[in-house]
């Protein structure tokens, strides 16, 4: 369980906080989406949940973060690595740039943990298998497509065996095929018990994937609930979030007097 209590945060050098009074719980195996307009605080929330803010980038944090009952306030940064992993939107900058193969890239984290070579190899193979990218093991990370690279990034986090993963717009730079690959991987991960917090602009991705969705507006949680209800909320657009196509299509059809449920169900089924 990853828990944020009364979190407020301001970046180093800034007087104004960008997050206010955030309370959030992420259970094991739960897939929670975070939506909001640009600068609503999604990325900052991801950095805090992973310990990088203020751990790596500084700034002022109020409130508390605990993971599996352990208060992380005084924990060193590397202690977060085995509890929560974070992935960003650009896979190119998350690859270490020092490895010659995908296998080495995924093995880098366990090696950093000082694990014996045998365990590193075992974890690496398992992470590649979980994401279905074992066939990429010998490929050069620099030569992968965006979708493949993002899967390698997620595998690199998985090999650290964190109980929770935080992903900040993991499909922002991916084509539809890459987005589909990542979505499948996330669903698979959640089913294995990994808690996932996914900040995304693409509500179509979150629709049908997340069990719960949180809406952020100006650094505050303005809505938190079951994905179906939140993504269909009429206030979503006012908060700068585009509802999923299924909802928009349904509304358009309803506006023309048609019964939207059949078509909407067909879209969702796809």
């Amino acid at each position: 369980m990853l828990e944020l209590h009364g979190i407020g945060y301001r970046y180093a050098g800034y007087a104004t906080p960008v997050l206010h009074d955030i309370d959030l719980r992420l259970a094991d195996g739960e897939l929670v989406g975070v939506v909001g307009a640009n600068e609503s605080g999604k990325s900052t929330l991801c950095l805090i949940a992973s310990g990088l803010a203020p751990g790596s980038i500084g700034g002022g944090l109020t409130g508390s973060l605990s993971i599996d009952g352990v208060d992380m306030a005084r924990q060193p940064l590397h202690a977060f690595a085995t509890r929560v992993g974070i992935g960003f939107q650009n896979p190119a900058t998350q690859l270490s740039g020092v490895t010659g193969s995908v296998f080495e890239e995924v093995a880098l984290g366990p090696m950093n943990l000082g694990l014996p070579a045998r365990e590193t190899v075992e974890r690496t193979k398992a992470a590649l298998a979980t994401l279905g990218i074992t066939d990429l093991a010998e490929r050069e990370p620099r030569r992968l497509s965006g979708g493949q690279a993002q899967l390698v990034v997620i595998a690199s986090l998985l090999s650290m065996r964190p109980a929770h993963l935080v992903l900040d717009e993991p499909t922002a730079q991916l084509d539809p095929e890459g987005t589909r690959l990542v979505a499948e991987a996330l669903r698979e991960l959640a089913s294995t018990g990994t808690g996932l917090l996914v900040a995304e602009h693409k509500t179509d991705l979150l629709d049908g994937l997340c069990s719960r969705v949180i809406v952020l507006d100006a650094g505050r949680i303005v809505l938190d609930g079951a994905a179906d209800l939140v993504l269909a909320d009429s206030r979503l657009e006012a908060w700068g979030v585009e509802p999923p196509s299924r909802i928009r299509l349904g509304r358009a059809l309803a506006g023309r007097g048609s019964d939207p449920s059949a078509i909407a169900d067909a879209v969702l089924a796809r």
């Binding site: 950095l47 790596s56 940064l77 690595a81 992993g85 992935g87 998350q94 950093n112 650290m160």
Partner: peptide, 12 residues
């Protein structure tokens, strides 16, 4: 990249 590496225990 440095943030990504931190999340992979580079500072350990």
């Amino acid at each position: 990249r440095s943030l990504a590496l931190e999340s992979r225990a580079f500072s350990r």
